[in-house]
């Protein structure tokens, strides 16, 4: 086995998940200006629903769509019942509302699904691919290909379709968008629905390779948020940031060991934060 090749493969696998999570966070952020700290719960819900249904003997073509639908419904509910009625609240308070939603969801999942980690069988089986001394299981390849393709597709949708432009308009100035006939509530539902689908999809792809429990959500939110922040909350760059984060974590683990991983990632995050605040202080176009 070649540790370097294996690091690159492993980095791409986690990078694809970070990219999916980051794009979901950015979508919600862009339509509401709220960093949705309950975003990762869509991962936990999708993973636990899939595992429970798989345990009940249902095939993947049933449990995967149902799990993704559950994640979609969850984030739609967060937008509809928690954020929409509080539209006039300051953003900081709304972020706390999403944090509360995350903890509440965690509690409900603990009661409903139990505390033990769960998993379910891979959907993509077969002999692993051996590439230059590295090993890539078919499920891992599916994770990288589907994950990156979906993240890119959502970004292209935002940048180049009329609906995507509307979402960006709502993000920037909801009142002005409303005056031009855009249904802001519906646009936000759409953004949260897509974000939920991305959370559910990442669970369906990743959980067979790892496991999921009721408290997986906040950790996932944190990983997605780091990628999103490194990418400046812009949809196109967060995909690169997600992949870059995954690859650099893997290379750090390979060359410097797992103990060095957190310090290096957080130093990078602080450096990016300082760099971005400089840009703002010197009159850049970025909004804090």
């Amino acid at each position: 086995m070649n540790p370097l090749t294996q690091s690159l493969i492993s980095g791409l696998m986690s990078g694809a998940v970070y990219a999916l999570l980051a794009v979901g966070l950015v979508l919600a952020f862009h339509t509401t200006r709220v960093v949705n700290l309950a975003h990762g719960e869509s991962f936990a819900i999708g993973g636990l629903v899939a595992a429970t249904l798989a345990d009940a003997g249902l095939p993947a073509y049933v449990f995967a769509p149902v799990a993704i639908a559950a994640s979609v419904l969850f984030l739609l509910a967060v937008e509809r019942f928690l954020l929409r009625p509080r539209r006039s609240w300051p953003i900081g308070n709304l972020i706390l509302v999403t944090l509360a939603a995350a903890f509440l969801t965690r509690g409900v999942l603990q009661l409903a699904m139990g505390v033990d980690p769960l998993s379910f069988p891979r959907m993509f089986t077969g002999a692993p691919f051996r590439i230059a001394g590295g090993v890539l299981p078919p499920q891992g390849l599916a994770l990288i290909v589907i994950g990156v393709t979906t993240a890119v597709a959502v970004t292209l949708f935002l940048l180049f379709t009329p609906l995507g432009r509307k979402l960006r308009a709502v993000a920037e100035n909801p009142d002005a968008a409303e005056l031009l006939g855009v249904n802001v509530d519906r646009a936000r539902s759409l953004a949260f629905g897509i974000a939920g689908a991305l959370g559910g999809l990442s669970a369906v792809l990743l959980v067979p390779l790892v496991s999921v429990d009721y408290q997986a959500g906040l950790g996932m939110t944190l990983r997605g948020f780091i990628a999103a922040a490194l990418g400046g909350m812009a949809p196109a760059t967060v995909i690169l940031a997600g992949l870059g984060l995954g690859l650099s974590e893997a290379l750090v683990t390979n060359y410097a060991g797992a103990l060095a991983q957190d310090p290096i990632v957080f130093i990078a995050l602080i450096a990016v934060a300082v760099w971005q605040s400089r840009k703002i202080a010197f009159g850049g176009t970025g909004r804090a």
């Binding site: 432009r165 308009a169 968008a177």
Partner: peptide, 27 residues
């Protein structure tokens, strides 16, 4: 009923063409 609001409120992060395209489906 159309309103051009005070301070223009154009979408700064969208191009001129994209700004003009926003009302398309509501028009």
């Amino acid at each position: 009923i159309a309103l051009v609001p005070e301070g223009r409120q154009i979408f700064q992060g969208l191009t001129v063409k994209e700004n003009l395209g926003i009302p398309r489906s509501a028009s």
